[in-house]
Every structure is written in C-alpha cells, then in structure tokens.
Write a protein that binds this DNA or RNA. Structure first.
Lengths: 103, 103
DNA sequence: TATATATAACTATATAATTAAATATTTGGT
DNA sequence: ACCAAATATTTAATTATATAGTTATATATA
C-alpha cells in the first residue's frame, strides 16, 4: 500500500495527471478526436463543426494546450492547433507500463 | 477532419471516455496509485491514509467502480476493492493504438 | 448492539457557458 | 504610409450547472 500517494501525486505522475484532468471532459475528448493524422485546424474550423460557442471552444483549447496535449501556432489572423503526439504517446505509455508493473 | 466526433463520442470510445472522466480527478488518481500490485483494500484502509472523510472516499470509490476501474467484493462487514487491471490495460492500449495510428 | 459502508440532503466550490469587450492582424481606401 | 474597417481569437464578467464535501441517516452484517 502506497500510503503517501493519498497525500500527493508523485512527481513522475505530474504529466499524466494533467493529461487525465484535461481529457476528463467529453467536449475536450471530442476536440482531440476531431483531428486527423498530422492535421492542423484553426479555431474557426473547430467551432464550425461543434455545438459550442467560439469562446467556449477557445477555453477548452486553452486547457488542452496548457496540458501539452495540443500545440499551437499563430499564422496571420488565425491560430492553428495540432495534436502533440510525442507527449500523448509517452504519457500513455508510461501509465500503461505502470499499470502492467504495479497492478 | 472527423466532423461528427464533435457531436458525440463514437461507441468504441465509450469505455476510454468513462475512464478518462473518472481519472480526471486528483483524489481518484491518488486512490488508484495507493494500490500495490494485486492488493485488495477495504474502504476503512483507504480512509485511514487519506485526508478525506469516509463518505467522500465512498463517493469516489463508487465513481471508480462505475467506470470499471475498480472491482469490489463484500466480505463480512467490509467491502474490498482492487484494480481492474485487464480493463485499464486494454483501454489504455486502445487509446495508445489510436494515437499512434491517427495523430 | 456495535461496526463497516453506502446513501440522502444539503452546502460549498469549481467548472462551464454565454455575452460583451479587448487585442491582434490583415485589408482597402486615401 | 496612414487610418479605419473587417476578421480571428482571447479575455473578462456574469450566470448557470455540475461536482465535491459534510453531516446525518439508513442498511447490512457480525
């Protein structure tokens, strides 16, 4: 029994924790699934296919960006977002390794 | 661009979605991490090492149980919980496969 | 009856959504 | 080049909603 884990998430879990919190929302899961392989989408394109307002989408994109799940770049007036595959891959692989080793 | 994903989570994502929502909470992440390999813990033991009240722990355990992350069995007066490794493993592996294939 | 856990009712808090205002960039007219 | 208008996005303020936590009560078992 890892008693101390009930007090604080260990450092090596910080990234995974952030990712789970950010993806613990159906809208944000949907946003993630909307991206095709290697695709970059701007805010307007995501708003267009969603049922949410511009600012709600903007808010969710910020959370995904803060969690390092999405990367972004401003080109002209538009801000393009894309999936940060390396971080997602590594994070999920780490969690999976942990599960296999410790459960 | 998977336009329809913005309207609803596809069926094959239902389990993963549930798991992410359930683990999108730091207390529940901590509860999960508290279990050692193959260990079964009853509610009292988890309450003992946590900062939360009995009923708060009970509430979080219910959410983890509903999401199939924990399994439980009542033995006498106590209810023992343990990690549902196969489901967690399969779910995370599916998400990882998806990420590798589609991002 | 005593003990372990779960549930209900309520309160507190955090998160989400909306509308309106602000910021940044491009475009077009002069 | 300069300035106003148009467009894309973000931020702020407010309101709405959902989730979490607590205390008290209920259920089940020894």
């Amino acid at each position: 029994m890892n008693k101390n884990y009930m007090r604080a998430i260990p450092k090596q879990w910080a990234t995974a924790s952030k990712v789970f919190v950010a993806l613990g929302d159906k809208h944000r899961q949907r946003i993630l699934l909307t991206f095709d392989r290697g695709e970059r989408l701007n805010v307007g394109q995501i708003v267009e296919v969603s049922t949410l307002s511009r600012s709600a989408i903007s808010h969710h994109l910020k959370i995904l960006h803060d969690a390092d799940i999405l990367l972004s770049e401003k080109i002209g007036k538009e801000v393009y977002f894309w999936v940060n595959r390396p971080v997602l891959d590594e994070t999920l692989q780490n969690v999976l390794d942990y599960i296999r080793k410790n459960t």
